[in-house]
Simulated scan of single mutants.
Amino acid sequence: MPFDLITGKFVPEKSNIWRDCVDGYYDWVQEHIEDGAPLNEADHCGDPPLLLAAGNGHLAVCQLLLEEGADVEQRNVMGETPLIRAAHNGHLATVQYLIDKGAEVNSIDMGDNTALHWASMRGHVEIVKYLLAQGADRTLRNKQEKIPIDLCQPCWSNSYRFARQLLSAY
Rank of each mutant, 00 (worst) to 15 (best):
M1I: 13
F3R: 08
F3Q: 06
L5R: 05
K9L: 14
P12Y: 02
K14E: 14
K14N: 14
R19Q: 14
R19E: 14
D20G: 01
V22C: 10
D23H: 14
G24R: 06
D27P: 00
W28N: 05
H32I: 01
I33M: 06
I33N: 09
E34N: 11
L39R: 05
N40M: 08
E41S: 11
D43F: 08
G46D: 10
D47T: 05
L52V: 03
L66P: 05
D71M: 04
D71E: 12
V72K: 08
E73C: 05
Q74L: 04
N89F: 08
G90K: 07
L92C: 07
V95E: 01
Q96T: 09
L98W: 06
G102F: 08
G102I: 12
V105R: 08
V105D: 08
D109K: 01
G111V: 01
D112Y: 13
T114P: 01
G123M: 12
G123W: 07
G123Q: 09
H124L: 09
V128W: 04
A136Q: 04
R138Y: 07
R138F: 09
R138P: 00
T139R: 06
K143D: 11
K146P: 00
I147S: 05
I149F: 00
L151T: 04
Q153V: 12
W156R: 08
S168Y: 01
